[in-house]
Simulated scan of single mutants.
Amino acid sequence: MSDDTTTALAQDRIIDITTIGRRSGEPRRIEIWFHRVDGRYYITGTPGRPRDWYANLVANPGFTFHLKESATADLPATARPITDPAEREKVFTDLFTLLAAFLGKPGQEPEAWLATSPLVEVTFP
């Protein structure tokens, strides 16, 4: 990865992702936040309704991670859904700490996040 890409992965928050539709097989692009925790990259969503992006990544884990803030790059990536309760708790605990520092306020309802929020770890080849 270039220095610009490495810097963007360390400091940016907003990206686009292009997934492959689980039913249509067509590319689907959305804007979303990503998070870096302990040198690993994660995408999550707020608790509640099912997310199409998550269902697409479960069905087709390969996707494109589009940097668009401090650098522009289209990175091939793979998503690993995190479903193990202990691993989810660890990631969300660390993520809430990070978000509280970043946003200046504590995370909301950790139990709801643990129970119903989509969570994937992102890896780059």
Rank of each mutant, 00 (worst) to 15 (best):
T97N: 13
Y42A: 02
E87R: 12
K68M: 14
D94T: 13
P106S: 14
I43Y: 02
S2T: 09
I15G: 01
R29S: 13
A59M: 08
I43W: 01
D84Q: 05
T19Q: 07
D84K: 04
T44P: 04
V122E: 00
F63T: 05
S70H: 06
P81R: 01
D94E: 15
S24K: 03
T5P: 00
L95Y: 07
D74C: 07
N60W: 01
T6I: 14
A112T: 11
D38L: 09
D38P: 01
H35Y: 15
R29K: 11
A100F: 02
Y54D: 05
E121L: 03
P61Y: 07
A101M: 09
I15E: 05
E87T: 13
A115Q: 13
E89I: 02
R51F: 10
D38V: 05
G107I: 12
Q108A: 14
P27E: 07
R88W: 11
L75V: 01
E26M: 11
G48H: 03
H66Q: 07
E109M: 12
H35G: 01
P81G: 01
I30A: 06
W53N: 07
E121D: 03
W53K: 08
P85M: 10
A8N: 02
V58R: 11
P61H: 06
I17F: 06
E111S: 15
H35I: 02
I32V: 12
R49G: 10
T46K: 10
A86H: 10
F102V: 12
H35D: 15
R80Q: 12
R28W: 05
T93Y: 11
D74V: 06
T93I: 10
A10M: 09
P125F: 09
I43C: 05
P106N: 11
P85H: 10
T6W: 01
T72Y: 12
G25R: 06
F65M: 04
T19G: 06
T7D: 11
P50A: 15
R49P: 07
K105P: 02
E89D: 14
T64Y: 08
A115W: 10
L103M: 13
D84G: 08
L75A: 09
V120F: 03
R28V: 07
I32Y: 03
G25D: 05
D3H: 11
L75Y: 07
D4F: 06
E69R: 11
A79F: 04
R49Y: 13
P61A: 04
R29Q: 13
R40E: 14
L98F: 14
L57K: 04
